[in-house]
C-alpha cells in the first residue's frame, strides 16, 4: 500500500508541477517537444528516488537539478548541432500573441539570442532570472562552483548585450 501511496503522491506532484517544469525546460531548449522530452527524462530519472528524496528534502529541487544537468550534458553530447536546430525550432514554433507585433518580435529575438548562448550559460540565465535563484543556489543546482556560475553569468550577459538579435533599446 505504501508503494501505491508513493505512486499517487508522485502523480499528484507531476500534475501540480509538470507545467512549471516544462516552462523551465522550454526556456532551456527553445523547443516545445524537446522540452517535454527533457521533463519526462528528468522525472523518469527521479521517480525511483521519490521516497528517499521526499523523506529528507525537496523533490522539486531535486527534479530541477536533474533537469538542468541532463540538459547541459545532452547539449555537450550534441556538440554544435543544437544551436542551428533550436534556432529553427524557435522561429517555426512561436505562436502568435495578442500583445502586439513589437512585443512578439522582441520576445522572439530574446528566444533566438538565448539559443546563441552555450547550454551552461543558458542554464545559468534561466536559473538566475527565471527561477530567481541566487548564485550559490544556482551553483548547487548545476553541481558547479559559485565561481563558475559567476563567470558563466558574466559571459552570458556580455553575449546578450552583444547579440545582434536584440534591438538597441533592450541591450
Amino acid at each position: 500500500m505504501r508503494r501505491d501511496r508513493s505512486a499517487e503522491a508522485f502523480d499528484e506532484f507531476v500534475a501540480a508541477r509538470g507545467d512549471a517544469l516544462w516552462r523551465s525546460a522550454f526556456l532551456l531548449t527553445g523547443d516545445r517537444h524537446v522540452a517535454e522530452e527533457l521533463v519526462q527524462d528528468a522525472l523518469a530519472r527521479c521517480w525511483p528516488h521519490w521516497r528517499r528524496v521526499t523523506a529528507g528534502g525537496d523533490f522539486e529541487s531535486y527534479v530541477r537539478r536533474v533537469l538542468f544537468t541532463t540538459h547541459t550534458r545532452r547539449w555537450r553530447r550534441r556538440a554544435g548541432h543544437a544551436v542551428a536546430g533550436d534556432e529553427v525550432a524557435w522561429s517555426k514554433d512561436r505562436p502568435a500573441s495578442a500583445d502586439g507585433p513589437d512585443g512578439v518580435e522582441q520576445r522572439r529575438d530574446l528566444a533566438v539570442a538565448l539559443q546563441d548562448l552555450s547550454a551552461g550559460q543558458r542554464a545559468v540565465v534561466v536559473l538566475r532570472w527565471f527561477e530567481d535563484l541566487s548564485v550559490d543556489e544556482t551553483a548547487r543546482v548545476l553541481g558547479v562552483s559559485s565561481g563558475t556560475v559567476k563567470s558563466q553569468t558574466a559571459r552570458a550577459l556580455a553575449a546578450l548585450r552583444r547579440s545582434t538579435h536584440l534591438s538597441e533599446e533592450v541591450r
Binding site: 505512486a7 509538470g18 517535454e36 522582441q106 540565465v125 527565471f130
Partner: peptide, 27 residues
Amino acid sequence: GLADLAERDAPPAGFGERVTGVRTRGA
C-alpha cells in the same frame, strides 16, 4: 522577458497524460 516567453507558450497537447506515464519508465 523570460517570464513572458515562458508564459506565452503551453506544453504540447497531451503533455499531462504523457508525463504522468514516466513513472512506468522510471520503474
